[in-house]
């Protein structure tokens, strides 16, 4: 295999397939024995955007396995609190008990799961492992409704049950703990059910700690994913009408047109914005003049939190989970090694 320059640690985007998709292929086989120092030297991170819900950051210089591990843990293994046990006292709505509870289960609440422990299924609920909510709602006719109104929300009260109707029932000691930040649904406007006069829903909901692997409702992220940094290179000047075509083939803001000697010439401005739609390859004349690729070790991470925990904390948590895993793996190796030693000693 031809040894390539590190600069070319890039995926090549062709018109029918991508090539060079592995880092090892890019660097050449066996050239990169893992070293911590190397890793330290190459690893760079920068946060692009950070709000409670959205987090965009770059990780540069790591193996996809590490980036992917963070992504996978974010989706499936960071623990959160979700409705898990529901005591239905009354449900006379049209929605079937099972569907109602399933919908309730998917409503996220703002509780810091780090303050709780996993609950032993045999044990009764305690303030250390459970948050309790209540939903008691009854639909009635709205007597104050205007004569000519026909909309259900006007002529009935409580015709729609929203997540905002869930009320927190503090267990012993929880009032103190959550005095500043009482648990509540993240969104108040999630429609749970619709009621008509005389119908009633009455239930007690216990929120327990769990991970996304067991059920999607525990997953703390709407999605967590990464993409590789796009690389676009114009090999030959593209002018005039072709330049405008080139501009339209990429996402907004990727290519701009500048006047050079009175001629419109396309110029790459911000390849990061590109969605890698490769529509430029549809034009035969343009296809030859550009080179498309993606940096293999530049991951643009995006984490959208559902809201139980802020995105940045989620990422930290996920790294903690990963460290825990590494540790337990090392422990296991140790244990196996120890056993082997013991066995050898006996011999």
């Amino acid at each position: 295999m031809v040894k390539m320059e590190p600069r070319e640690a890039e995926v090549t985007i062709g018109s029918h397939q991508q090539s060079n998709i592995r880092l090892s292929e890019a660097y050449g086989e066996g050239s990169q024995a893992y070293s911590l120092a190397d890793f330290r030297r190459k690893l760079r991170m920068s946060v692009v955007k950070c709000t409670d819900e959205d987090l965009e950051f770059d990780i540069i210089g790591v193996d996809p396995a590490i980036a992917n591990a963070i992504r996978r843990i974010l989706i499936a293994e960071v623990p959160t609190m979700a409705a898990d046990r529901i005591t239905l006292i009354n449900n006379t709505s049209f929605i079937h008990d099972k569907d109602l509870t399933n919908r309730i289960g998917l409503v996220p609440i703002r509780v810091d799961s780090r303050l709780f422990e996993n609950r032993n299924p045999e044990q009764p609920a305690s303030s250390q492992d459970t948050v309790v909510f209540e939903l008691h709602i009854r639909c009635t006719k709205n007597l104050q409704a205007a004569q000519d109104s026909t909309l259900p929300k006007d002529i009935y009260s409580n015709s729609s049950v929203y997540s905002g109707h869930l009320t927190w029932v503090p267990l012993e000691g929880q009032e103190m703990l959550f005095a500043k930040n009482p648990p509540k649904p993240i969104h108040d406007d999630i429609l749970i059910a619709k009621l008509r006069p005389g119908q009633e829903i009455d239930m007690k909901i216990e929120y327990l700690k769990g991970i996304g692997k067991t059920h999607a409702k525990f997953s703390p992220v709407a999605t967590a994913s990464y993409r590789l940094l796009p690389v676009i290179e114009i090999l030959e000047d593209v002018c005039g009408e072709a330049a405008r075509r080139l501009k339209n083939s990429f996402s907004k803001g990727v290519v701009e047109i500048e006047k050079r000697n009175g001629v419109d010439v396309a110029k790459i401005v911000n390849p990061r914005m590109d969605t890698c739609s490769r529509n430029v390859l549809m034009h035969d004349d343009l296809a030859e003049k550009v080179r498309l690729g993606r940096k293999l070790d530049h991951f643009i991470f995006s984490v959208e939190s559902v809201g139980m925990l802020p995105s940045d904390i989620l990422v930290k948590e996920s790294i903690k989970v990963m460290l825990g895993k590494c540790k337990s793996f090392l422990d296991q190796i140790e244990r196996v090694r120890g056993k082997r030693k013991n066995a050898n000693g006996h011999h």
């Binding site: 992504r71 996978r72 989706i75 499936a76 996304g212 692997k213 999607a216 997953s219 999605t223 967590a224 994913s225 993409r227 969605t275 890698c276 995006s302 959208e304």
Partner: peptide
């Protein structure tokens, strides 16, 4: 599981 599924640039 979702984590094992292939994903695109937007996740």
């Amino acid at each position: 599981g979702q984590e094992d599924m292939p994903f695109d640039d937007q996740g």
